[in-house]
Design a protein around this nucleic acid. Structure first.
Length: 229
DNA sequence: TCATTAACCCCAG
DNA sequence: CTGGGGTTAATGA
């Protein structure tokens, strides 16, 4: 698979003609990012737009006590970044690679030129951002004030919907297509590892999740029922 | 009351 | 040995 093909898979760019993709390709260097790397942090002023070609990233904020609050999860084909004109998160957020990722980096100027030249891209951008904003508000609402069990369930449902794989042998469980330690799960919902361990083993007893070494599978139906209580 | 802290243990690589 | 996972009593917002 070449770079241009990847570009055609990016949601923002999917309707662009080949020549535009080739132009973007020439302007946007590709780079690989290791799992756990912070691609964007609030203190650096980063004016690029990132095209996520491969891998998964998490958008999050830090609260006053230094706890992380997850705002969103993105898989391949999505965009993210902060520019003076356009911001994909609510203000000063972090973006972390959840696995080894492949990104293209488009400079502010190139990006703005593209928006001017192709109004349909700007329109699409608005759609994406609106949707993104809605999602992060929703996540904050669910992750900020509820207890650990609820937050964990909510996160797992999100993860499973985005990155879950149905396994023929273990239906109705969806296996999460990423490896997460309890510590990482805890960070995502602003809790401690211990609390997550306790909540996870409780959920395992209820047969809502199945945890193996380095893997988690979730019964979404059951999980969503529990969220409604 | 619930979650965190801190202190354990165990297991696999 | 290290990192990850599991547990519990005491503490605290």
């Amino acid at each position: 698979m070449n770079k241009v093909w990847y570009l055609s898979q990016i949601n923002l760019l999917e309707e662009l003609p080949m020549e535009d993709l080739q132009m973007i390709d020439a302007m946007a260097p590709m780079s690989t990012v290791k799992r756990g790397t912070m691609i964007i942090t609030p203190d650096q002023d980063n004016n690029n737009l990132y095209l996520l070609k491969q891998g998964k990233v998490r958008l999050f904020k830090m609260n006053e006590e230094g706890k992380q609050l997850t705002l969103g999860l993105l898989g391949k084909g999505n965009i993210f970044g902060e520019t003076e004109t356009v911001s994909t998160g609510s203000g000063s957020a972090y973006v972390e690679a959840m696995d080894d990722a492949l990104v293209c980096i488009l400079g502010k100027q190139d990006f703005e030129n593209l928006l001017t030249k192709r109004p349909q891209v700007a329109l699409k951008m608005v759609n994406i951002l609106t949707q993104r904003l809605r999602e992060s508000e929703e996540m904050l609402e669910h992750l900020a004030f509820r207890d650990v069990r609820y937050r964990l369930l909510y996160l797992l449902v999100k993860l499973a919907k985005r990155f879950g794989e149905s396994q023929s042998d273990s239906r109705p469980f969806l296996k999460l297509d990423l490896t997460l330690s309890h510590q990482e799960l805890a960070n995502m919902i602003g809790a401690t590892r211990e609390s997550v361990s306790v909540a996870l083993s409780q959920l395992a007893k209820e047969d809502v999740v199945r945890t193996g070494r380095k893997e988690i599978a979730l019964d979404i139906e059951k999980a969503e029922l529990l969220l409604e209580e």
